[in-house]
Amino acid sequence: MMAAQLGIITNNQHQVFQRAVIAGIREVVETHGLGLLIDSYADDETHPRPVTLDYHAVEGVCVIADAAPVDLLQAMVAAGKPVSLVSHRVPSLPIPTVSADNMQGVGELVQHVVEGCQRQQLVFIRGLSGQWDADGRENAFRQEIMRYNLHVPPAHMLRGDFSASMAAHSLQTLIANGARFDAVIAADYLMAIAAVETLRGAGYRVPDDVSVVGFGDAREAEAAGLTTVAADVVEQGRRAARQLLSQINGLRIRGMTVLSVRLIVRDTSLPQSVNLP
């Protein structure tokens, strides 16, 4: 007899963030002797429609970010199917979510850059507009620059979509326009790594000329010596799986479970001229 299964809906199971979340979910699900059915629609260009997962055939569904359209989420709720969202939120629906603490994380990054690295001319690379984490981190950045009374021109709020290529392109354009800045804060560590490479390619010294930091941590960030706030994405997946399993076992959950993050200072932020207290 086939083991009961949980479903995962994601736009691409091979990307770094999604892969780590799935690893965490898988870890918990396997300890419960359950199977996993992954609908990763962006992997297949001939995919007939965005999501093909038959949610009736699984015990519950984890949705990573905004991979499932609202009408599908509504249908699952109406059918009484347990659902958990990872790094996303739909306030109009009673679906719980698990997210990293974007406000705390961005707060710590800005505090480090402004107080620790004594930077004043900040550039922010946004995530994908409309995505929960992206909007949350941008909002947190806007709050923090008010705390420090910093003026960040609109041109310094760079377009990003969590991809390295978009981050590099936006930063190249800013450099080409002759903008003056001394710190880059990216909504994601992959974009921050791209920023470091772009800056060095353009002749800037990182961190002496420009401090670079990004949200989230992984082996890639560590290898690049990037200063980050560590949001343990595998743990986020584990916590989401637990949330989903608890719902399947009859617990009624609404709202948002938030996981704390912590600042990890590495090589890309502190110029040698600044001594930490």
């Binding site: 719902q247 479970t257 996981l259």
Partner: peptide
Amino acid sequence: ARHYTDLDGAQGEVVVAVVCETINGLLA
């Protein structure tokens, strides 16, 4: 972990239910 649940203007018994939903979020 922390868990947040909006009250959405709820009052009385509904607030007790939201308290339980928040506890459930952490029990998970």
